[in-house]
Amino acid sequence: MSRKRQRAQVAVITGASAGVGRATARLLARRGIAIALLARGRTGLEAAAAEVRAAGSRALPVEVDMAEHDQVVAAGQRIEAELGPIDLWINCAFSSVFAPFQETRPEEFRRAMEVTYLGYVHGTRVALHHMTPRDRGTIVQAGSALAYRGIPLQATYCGAKHAIVGFTESLRCELMHDKSNVKVTMVQLPALNTPQFDWLLSRLPRHAQPVPPIYDPVVAARALVAAADRPGRREYWVGASTALTILGNRIIPGVLDRYLARTGYKSQQTDRPADHDRPANLWQPADGPQGRDFGALGSFTARSHRHSAQAWLSRHRLVTAAGLTGAAAGVLAWRRH
């Protein structure tokens, strides 16, 4: 994937029908990579496959519930048979609930964890089943700043993302122990303008929103593709807000507890009353056979950023280091005079 690694020829993206998965499929399609698109919603999958084909790449849309291990296994077998050996697997699929923990029903919490956490586990297991015998391949886990810092109203999502970090760290150690050439890396993402705020189950009185600053999903997609190209790094952080959140939680977690207790409810809701008749995708896909194509973008395009300076600097660390070194040398030279 880097200069010493062959670029992927067959990629799998879970949660590919919308949001970050959809945006990532568009970027990879421009490289001519054959892409298997995994998700539950038929309408979104067919639209995503059409975009991949329009870019000149092969597309294989597969309806699959990532919470069901047998379905993921069958999807992996079909991909290998129809597209070829899987080189790259990107886990993006998730579902969740916007609600205080005590208003989230036990079966809802379980379902969200099965889709989001166990979906990554199942996807990773199937990817390894095919990659390990060939001793090559890359697995990229789409994470979140909330994988390190829990916030109110999102206990299901934060719990799942925290679990993915622990699982991925354990797996990475095992692959290193085995001297495997299969690589696994994780990308921690900021608040994104995706359809999740239009289709996740919500019990909030007002319409849910991402905590600003909000980024376009293409920012996340660029980071996931960059991580696939350079999987030697254990983790990537995307967006200054992600870096500040993770570092702040390491240094002043108690302060963040009090701050989020005071601001976390309001900052995650707009002034618009919630539409409780809207579709919710926890149990059934909102973009099913009779649904609409939600695409990559959510309802906050006017407030979202298509670029992140921090993400660019993170991807180009050598350039950043050279620039800082040059600046330091310039300051020293100026001070001598």
Rank of each mutant, 00 (worst) to 15 (best):
G291F: 10
S308Q: 08
R292K: 14
A296H: 01
W312R: 08
R262D: 08
R303Y: 12
A286L: 05
W283N: 07
L324P: 04
L324H: 11
H307G: 05
K266D: 04
G288R: 05
G295K: 02
R258H: 13
R292F: 15
Q284M: 09
A309E: 05
D275R: 05
H305W: 01
Y265S: 14
G295Q: 02
A321Q: 15
Y259T: 04
A274H: 07
R262L: 15
R262G: 10
L260T: 06
P273F: 06
W283L: 11
D257P: 03
L260M: 14
D287Q: 01
P285W: 02
V319Q: 05
G298P: 00
S308D: 01
G323T: 05
A286Q: 00
G295V: 09
Q290K: 12
V319E: 05
Q290D: 15
G326C: 11
L313D: 02
S314V: 12
A286V: 03
R262K: 15
Y265F: 14
P273N: 03
A302R: 09
A286R: 01
S308E: 04
Y265D: 08
A286T: 01
L256K: 11
F294H: 04
Q310A: 15
L282D: 00
Y259C: 08
R272L: 14
T301W: 14
P273E: 02
Q268E: 02
R262T: 04
